[in-house]
Design a binder for these strands. Structure first.
Length: 584
RNA sequence: GCCAAAUUAGUUCAGUGGUAGAACAAGGCACUCGUAAUGCUUAGAUGUAAGUUCGAUUCUUACAUUUGGCACCA
């Protein structure tokens, strides 16, 4: 997807278009007050206070029309520089602009405004020379947006739009937006019978159909196998726990509002667990550990429940019940670097094998100024952050540093991806934790016989399996690799009367080889069955007739290809087995 | 949770203040077919609850769910 913000000319154009939008809104709603109208990756928006008025989606064409009118008039866009005093006077009736101006330091920034015809807006620019250049734009959506991004503040109205230099560019972009919707995992999930929701069960609670569960199971097996090779031990712990467990961990104090409310039975209080760290801490605490035992790597495919805001729910990407590919690595301080490195390598290897390329790393650090949010230990933070940086640099990984995005207990590395619709999401994560082990009094006996507190790495390679499936369906547009496909092979006999026996023979052979195979013996035309196999995105379709039966061969057609290949049955099975083994 | 919008058959979509229409899917019958849709036929729907009305799927309100954003995402 095009990133407007990264293109200097389009940034200027889109920001100018935001002013044009504001001017048009001002014409139509004279009492409108304006907050800010920045350029974003997807174009631009403007936040507007309309008092009692509401702009609805159906009002957008009207606003667009006014924008076109202003554009045709072709007024020049003129810049003026002002002193802070002049600016305060000029916008004295506009509490939003006053708020912006009052926080500006005259010595550091030049205060400027831009005028086009009857409209002047406070702005640092730059802008295009004349509104005439703003011809190929489209208003895309409206929504509410809290003033200053604070939900305690008033909600303003935000209008989103995008502007290009040519009609062709605009149309291509709109087409691309349309195409994006076609790979939305919610659409694919329905089309391919992967999961569904039901009001009676409850919102945000996905149910996986047989097809979905196969994908799930394969991913689970895949990652557990990788983890075992790295010395992880898998455990099984309950999806709920005593409230005291979360009081000890600190989650009860900090994150109660994101948990389902507690339930009381026989005088005991329980909560559905929102994460697995406390349970895994107790696994560690169950026995004494020597420095020789570390690192201890406890993994679990663990079901969690979080009381997500209803407005945050989205397919299987954000749910109230999900399953984490979680693990906690208990390490000595000296082992942080090698274990962190090993986790990053596992992430890279998995992504490579799954052919995932659209992602980037974010290193979330603390804000040293924020003494409230973060665990107080400057030395620890510096050491931890340096270690993470060093590992990433050694591995030659590029990453973006995010100040103030760390967890309260330590810095973390996140893998971010962009879904078909909506904001970036986190898939993999690896977090350093210097707090929880102490809270649970976890120790190991060091060389000198003294008791030391281990450091914990929380990590999830697939993040939540649910979210990973969502993302992967969108990446592959539902055409999953062979090893993950719910149905790997579809057999179509040319004629049920003559070829069914042979088709059944092949079916059994494939199933004996643990290859997920279906036999389509419906009384339908061959072309019809081929078409359906393609729309179901089944990787291989076998057509079996006289030719194949008489020579003990199969004729296959790969998904998305029109050519066919005839080979000996045993060779075919070998080929499929190899591809599955190589995660093709 | 907040600001909006949407909700019609299993699915995708029409439509109307007065008997709700189609395509695909499903069932039945015929066709017996070599790589993207054989023909005919049958059954199937207005999210829930109130209100306005002679009459509501259509208008109003509430609720539920979904969608687009905002906020949130340990």
């Amino acid at each position: 997807m095009l990133n407007i913000k990264e293109n200097e000319d389009l940034s200027k154009l889109n920001h100018s278009c935001a002013h044009l939008l504001a001017q048009a809104v001002k014409h139509l709603y004279p009492h409108a007050k304006f907050w800010v109208g920045p350029v974003i990756e997807e174009g631009f928006y403007y936040d507007i206070d309309l008092g009692e008025d509401v702009i609805k989606e159906e009002d957008l064409p009207k606003i667009e029309k006014e924008m076109k009118k202003i554009s045709k008039d072709g007024k020049r866009i003129v810049r003026h520089e002002l002193t802070k005093e002049e600016a305060l006077e000029m916008f004295k009736d506009d509490k939003y602009k006053l708020d912006l101006i009052s926080r500006m330091d005259e010595n550091e920034v030049v205060i400027s405004c831009y005028t086009q015809g009857d409209f002047t807006d406070l702005c640092r620019g730059p802008h295009v020379d004349t509104v005439k250049e703003l011809k190929y734009f489209k208003l895309l959506k409206v929504s509410g947006a809290y003033w200053k991004a604070d939900s305690n503040n008033k909600m303003l109205q935000r209008i989103y739009g995008i502007c290009f230099r040519s009609e062709e560019d605009l149309n291509n972009h709109l087409k691309e937006l349309e195409d994006q919707k076609n790979r939305d995992h919610r659409k694919i999930g329905k089309e391919l019978d992967i999961f569904f929701m039901n009001d009676l069960v409850g919102k945000g609670l996905p149910m996986y159909l047989p097809n979905g569960y196969i994908i799930w199971e394969q991913l689970e097996n895949y990652i557990k196998m990788k983890e075992r090779k790295l010395g992880y031990q898998h455990v099984l712990t309950p999806p709920l726990g005593n409230v005291e467990l979360y009081k000890t961990s600190g989650h009860w104090e900090h994150y109660q509002e994101n948990m389902f409310p507690k339930m009381e039975v026989e005088g005991e209080e329980f909560v559905l667990r929102p994460m697995n760290c406390p349970h895994h801490m107790m696994i560690y605490a169950n026995s004494i550990h020597s420095y020789r035992d570390l690192p201890i790597r406890i993994g679990e495919i663990a079901r969690d429940c979080r009381f997500e805001a209803s407005g945050a729910l989205k397919g299987i990407e954000r749910t109230r019940s999900f399953c984490q590919n979680d693990a906690h690595l208990f390490v000595t301080p000296e082992q942080i670097e090698s274990e962190f490195s090993s986790v990053v390598n596992l992430i890279l290897e998995s992504y490579r094998e799954l052919n995932i390329t659209n992602y980037h790393f974010e290193l979330s650090l603390r804000d040293p100024e924020d003494k409230v949010k973060y665990h107080k230990d400057d030395k620890m933070w510096d050491m931890a952050e340096d270690t993470l940086r060093r590992v990433l640099n050694n591995l030659g990984i590029s990453y973006v540093e995010k100040i103030g995005e760390a967890a309260f207990y330590g810095p973390k590395l996140d893998v971010q991806v962009k879904p078909a619709v909506g904001n970036e999401i986190t898939i993999s994560t690896c977090q350093l934790d210097f707090c929880l082990p102490a809270k649970f009094n976890l120790t190991y006996v060091d060389k000198d016989g003294s008791k030391k507190t281990p450091v914990v790495l929380h990590r999830a390679v697939f993040g939540s399996i649910d979210r990973f499936i969502a993302y992967y369906l969108e990446e592959t547009k539902g055409a999953l690799p062979l090893w993950l496909s719910p149905v790997q092979i579809n057999i179509i006999p040319v004629n049920n009367d003559y070829h069914l026996d042979y088709a059944n023979e092949i079916l059994n052979k494939l199933r004996e080889n643990d290859i997920r195979t279906e036999l389509d013996m419906r009384e339908e035309k061959l072309g019809y069955k081929i078409r359906e196999a393609q729309t179901r995105k089944i990787p291989y379709t076998l057509v079996l007739g006289n030719n194949e039966r008489d020579n003990n061969t199969v004729t296959y057609r790969k998904y998305g290809e029109e050519s066919t290949t005839t080979i000996e049955t045993d060779k075919f099975i070998e080929m499929i087995n190899n591809q599955i083994k190589e995660y093709k």
